[in-house]
Design a protein around this nucleic acid. Structure first.
Length: 331
DNA sequence: AATGTAATAT
DNA sequence: AATATTACAT
């Protein structure tokens, strides 16, 4: 339920003149399941923002001491577009922090940043959303067990903001109604798992293990399997125009399976750029978080992270493009 | 305890 | 329309 929500896909823009530190930041943010864009200078970053102000949810900007360009970002971008901006610096003396905070920074973080600090930066997006009605914030959503308390707080805050503004902010995101989308890639993996198990042995739990997709639940696989078998029955019926049911309970004809694979692969949508294959570092079980044992990213993961995918969907893409279509109900 | 199925909900 | 959830049987 609520404790399983995580704002995956939050689009973070990082600006730092140190390119190697940009890499570090990128890795950390990706581990948080955020989408990352990086720039090593303020000028290019600014021009990017001006063309893409709807696609940036949060800015993390280094404190460029000599020129104070970061102040410029704050005053221009933050106030103009309402994009929350976090300043980071290795120098954290109070007067500096004060200056940036009073100029609109959402937070001031001291380098080097740990992932624990970056995990929670999404909160700034929620807090800042008031008055940002012109922005379309299509944030991909999915499930995680992290930040139980803060997540519920933030969604509660969001709720009240939506009520106050009466719909102007409703397109921000509602973390509570996220659903898995069976992309063709996901479906292919599902099919591969089913086929490798064989029609008799393909049961949700085994399929789930073979697929190795993070956050995918047994129930989701079961639901998909149910529909998949419906699909098989239906297509085998139309194939043979069969009024005499075959001896086996499930039509195990390879042709329908094959056709399914062909159909899906004919729509060759490989998703390399938008992170559907993104590897995230999450642990799996949902248990009682009130027990006080806070889960850190990856610390309870029995599996090596790189063999897992993470399912996500990008709301920029319309579902019809990525969703697997059952051919028996086409049209 | 996990699964299959159908019905129902979102 | 697609996915999630539920209820019940196995």
């Amino acid at each position: 339920m609520d404790q399983e929500l995580w704002p995956s896909g939050l689009r973070v823009l990082v600006i730092d003149n140190n390119i190697s530190y940009l890499k570090v930041m990128e890795e950390l943010l990706i581990k948080c399941s955020y989408k990352v864009t990086t720039y090593n200078n303020v000028r290019e970053a600014m021009s990017f923002i001006y063309g893409n102000e709807q696609t940036v949810d949060l800015i993390i900007c280094d404190l460029f001491f000599p020129t104070e360009d970061s102040l410029l970002i704050l005053q221009e971008v933050t106030s103009k577009f309402g994009i929350p901006t976090v300043i980071m610096s290795s120098n954290g003396d109070t007067s500096t922090v004060m200056k940036y905070i009073t100029n609109g920074a959402s937070d001031f973080l001291i380098k080097p940043l740990r992932i624990e600090e970056l995990k929670n930066i999404w909160q700034h997006v929620f807090r800042k959303q008031i008055g940002a009605e012109h922005r379309k914030c299509n944030i991909a959503q999915h499930i995680d067990q992290l930040s139980y308390r803060t997540t519920t707080e933030a969604t509660a805050t969001l709720d009240s903001e939506i009520r106050e503004n009466n719909g102007t902010v409703t397109d921000i995101l509602d973390l509570r109604k996220s659903r898995l989308i069976w992309t063709m890639q996901l479906h292919r993996q599902f099919i591969a798992a089913v086929n490798s198990l064989g029609p008799e042995k393909a049961v949700p739990k085994k399929i789930l293990e073979i697929m190795k997709v993070k956050h995918l639940t047994r129930e989701q696989v079961a639901s998909h399997l149910q529909k998949y078998r419906l699909h098989l029955r239906n297509s085998s019926q139309t194939l043979y125009k069969d009024d005499t049911p075959s001896s086996s309970s499930y039509p195990n004809n390879e042709s329908s399976i094959l056709r399914t694979q062909l159909n899906s692969s004919s729509n060759s949508l490989y998703f390399d750029q938008d992170g559907c294959m993104e590897i995230a570092d999450y642990s799996l079980p949902k248990d009682d978080l009130s027990s006080g044992s806070e889960c850190t990213l990856g610390e309870r993961n029995n599996y090596s992270p790189e063999c897992f995918q993470d399912f996500r969907w990008d709301s920029d893409k319309q579902g019809s493009e990525t969703t697997y279509l059952w051919n028996f109900e086409a049209e």
